[in-house]
Design a protein around this nucleic acid. Structure first.
Lengths: 330, 330
DNA sequence: GTGAAAGCGCTAACAG
DNA sequence: CTGTTAGCGCTTTCAC
């Protein structure tokens, strides 16, 4: 790999001039600049970013921590992040934690060690790893932690779940079950609260058997429904995300149930495929692209000025499709 | 951020000793090491990887370049890569190029600048960017370039397409159309050849109207089918990947066609959702996890010993499901 | 407008 | 076993 020194030699200038020609072109004479550019092209020089970062303590790179790259929900969010990042000259690196806190920590390491300037976390694995109260430019998207004072962009999880369950109640359903994500996850706690709020408002008691736990994956939704089906007689099901809803729907169908005739299903997220399955999935849509864009905008503000915007709450929307219908006696 | 100097000062040793205590603990006296470790903990020191990499030219990190994070096909491959990487102590960073050669180049930059040791490319954007014949530890997965002597892990694209089309021919179909990815993409050229081979063997001529181009995305498959439907009367359709096949299937259905009664569809990849759509998608399965694992294993060998394993070809398999059926006169 | 020189934080000889 | 020294490749004062 050619270095700046070789370019300088060939162009007959000092390394400082070569550096300036790249960083502040207007500071260097037209003629000199052209010589430098020619030399750069000739040797095929490309600056060593790592040396540059070491010097400037800035990498113009951010890292996005994703819990599960197989969950399509995150793809659109990443795209939103990338759009803004690119506009502002930031590169984005993705880290998939496979729901593993140690890996999440490795990615945080990139920021500590100056390989990246900041991080957007889409995962809930972080607090286990943030005991040191380590402070770094960071924004949390989707997930959130009441105890950690980290700028967050998210939806109102309790209200969203409330809306989903309320919708099912209005259709006349009484036996409404739900499949949650990990029970200790704050967004799941909030969504559970939304479920309870809606049920209690309608005057129904909460049946512990009406709940099963998954991990947000398709397969966990499939498995959770099988357990649920054995233990609780329901006419409607609310799943905490679409991947699980889709898994549960498949499970229901293969158990011989008709959706929505025997079972209404409502999910949450609105994935690309949610509208193309059979039946199409009714769901609470999350503005995925906007979540990503907002998160990146906040991170850039933090990087520039240390301004902290706490807790941005974005709007969701109920999308009624064909996986849900009015309750009918069987 | 505390530096090694502060640790050294606090521990009452030189920076070299601190460094050794971290890199080669056995080289430093038990007692000294303990002092150093205590100092590290006290100031909350964490080494600046960027300075370290600048010095050692090694990062124990590899980068995976992905053309489109929204295409689920890549998720499983990435998981395969991660499994092996983790076993061998490598971190993996993901870079989504959004089909953009400039971004692809940025990620290559990570290797040139020693922020990563090697790269696995799942994208076809590279050659445009590799004019300089730049050599770096790299393996190509899925895509390949006949002209570039880069270790590759892939399937036999022509044979796979041949198998798909042959299958449709055996079902009695004669009017078989196909939706390709970008026409200048080598794997698409190979798959087109497989299509032609099968058609010609069966004694059918090639109709230029029986072909449309997409970009491997769901939406492009949807749009391509609409064009195809206007210009060519077909009883069967082969799509170069499942995302497009799923898009085409939706398009067909919304145009009032029955799948498979009016139109048989065969895809390629075998995504998680391919078996859960209605109808379930017949497809040529690619061993995604294995592709990822193999690619990473090869990269590690290159990193260790410069051994080059050219062109590993993995097996595919036709999965017959319900989106295809025997031809019937209408 | 340009060059000389210092140094970002770290590791790796080389001495001792 | 440990300290001293010399850079890795780059940017950035500070002079000229």
């Amino acid at each position: 790999m050619p270095t700046i020194k070789e370019v300088a030699l060939l162009a007959g200038v000092s390394t400082a001039t070569v550096s300036r020609a790249m960083m502040n072109p207007q500071q260097v004479a037209e003629k000199t600049r052209r010589k430098v550019e020619a030399a750069i092209a000739e040797v095929g020089y490309s600056p060593n970013a790592i040396a540059r970062n070491l010097r400037t303590s800035e990498s113009k790179t951010i890292v996005v921590i994703i819990p599960d790259i197989e969950n399509m929900f995150f793809a659109k969010i990443v795209r939103g992040i990338q759009t803004i990042a690119q506009q502002q000259g930031y590169k984005v690196l993705l880290g998939d934690t496979v729901h593993n806190a140690t890996l999440a920590n490795d990615y945080l390491e990139l920021v500590r060690s100056k390989q990246a300037d900041g991080v957007i976390s889409l995962t809930a694995e972080l607090p286990k790893v943030l005991q040191h109260g380590t402070s770094m430019p960071m924004v949390m998207a989707c997930e959130y932690f009441p105890d950690f004072p980290i700028p967050t962009v998210r939806i109102d999880n309790q209200a969203a779940a409330y809306q989903a369950v309320k919708y099912l109640l209005e259709l006349g359903h009484k036996q409404i079950a739900y499949i949650s994500g990990p029970l200790d996850n704050p967004i799941c706690i909030a969504r559970s609260a939304g479920y309870r709020q809606a049920m209690q408002e309608a005057g129904y008691s909460i049946n512990e058997l009406a709940k099963e736990e998954g991990d947000f994956s398709f397969h966990s939704g499939h498995a959770a429904f099988e357990r649920l089906h054995r233990q609780y007689k329901m006419s409607a099901l609310f799943c905490f995300n679409d991947m699980m809803a889709l898994g549960a729907m498949r499970s229901a169908i293969s158990l011989g149930l008709k959706v929505p005739d025997d079972l209404s299903i409502v999910g949450m997220d609105d994935l690309l495929f949610s509208q193309y399955t059979d039946p199409q999935l009714t769901t609470i849509m999350q503005p995925q692209t906007l979540i990503g864009e907002t998160a990146m905008q906040i991170l850039i503000k933090i990087l520039n000025a240390k301004t902290v915007h706490q807790d941005n709450v974005l709007q969701t929307q109920l999308l009624v499709r064909s996986s849900s219908r009015r309750y009918q006696k069987l």
